[in-house]
């Protein structure tokens, strides 16, 4: 994983910050974009780039739940089971997906396509119950719609997110975006979902906007 392009991207990320150590988080996202997860080699490379001990980088990598220490699927599925989503159907969706996929929390299907995780509140409560795939929004899910979603992911026909790009990127592709490498897709997708517009629409109906 020491190809020239990757090293050049690392240098450009480090150059954004007044102090190099601040680049540690985007560099770890970039390692995931290259390797799929934070590998020991990735930790060493980040440490070398930032002139840190590997233990210092590993300490950071293990603190944050988005950094994975083993491979996830091409499509990493997160089901919100924080209170509001859980009550409104998130618990049923999560247990339904575990049964349907035959895997548990933080596990991956044998074909390597899909991994499953229960996640905390993802700031989309007005679209509950919420499912994220590669950290793209799939709003207003049911047990059936979520099963259909993962079936499509496994069969290679990933549907578009509700509020996101026109097609669903892979885990590695989206990890690059998180590292700050533009994929040029910011203009795709809706500007706002229906719930985001609820108040504005009512204000118009009432002559208050």
């Amino acid at each position: 994983m020491k190809d020239e392009a990757l090293l050049a991207q690392m240098d450009s990320i480090i150059a954004r910050y007044p102090k190099s150590r601040s680049a540690i988080m985007p560099l770890l996202h970039l390692v995931q974009a290259s390797e799929g997860f934070v590998t020991p080699e990735g930790v060493e490379l980040v440490a070398k780039k930032l002139d840190l001990a590997t233990a210092e980088v590993a300490a950071v990598a293990t603190f944050y739940s988005q950094y994975k220490r083993r491979p996830v699927g091409d499509y990493h599925v997160g089901v919100c089971t924080n209170t509001l989503c859980a009550v409104m159907g998130g618990d049923a969706i999560f247990s339904g997906l575990k049964d349907h996929l035959g895997i548990g929390n933080d596990e991956r299907t044998s074909d390597g396509k899909v991994s499953l995780e229960h996640i905390e509140c993802n700031a989309a409560c007005d679209y509950a119950p919420v499912v994220m795939v590669n950290w793209e929004f799939f709003d207003n899910q049911t047990v059936e719609s979520a099963k259909e979603l993962v079936d499509k992911l496994r069969s290679g026909n990933p549907p578009a997110p509700t509020r996101g790009p026109n097609t669903l990127p892979t885990w590695k592709e989206n990890s690059a975006v998180l590292a700050g490498i533009s994929d040029g897709r910011a203009n795709e997708g809706v500007q706002a979902g229906p719930a985001s517009l609820a108040g504005l629409e009512i204000a118009h109906e009432r002559g208050e906007a």
């Binding site: 954004r16 150590r21 601040s22 988080m25 996202h29 300490a59 603190f63 739940s65 905390e120 998180l178």
Partner: peptide
């Protein structure tokens, strides 16, 4: 203006933890 992306830690919404995280440490 620098866009910095977190990695899944609620505690980083606490302002001083956020600063530690932005400096490249555990939040």
């Amino acid at each position: 203006l620098i866009v910095h992306v977190g990695a899944g830690a609620y505690i980083c919404g606490e302002e001083t933890a956020l600063l530690d995280s932005l400096e490249g440490f555990r939040g």
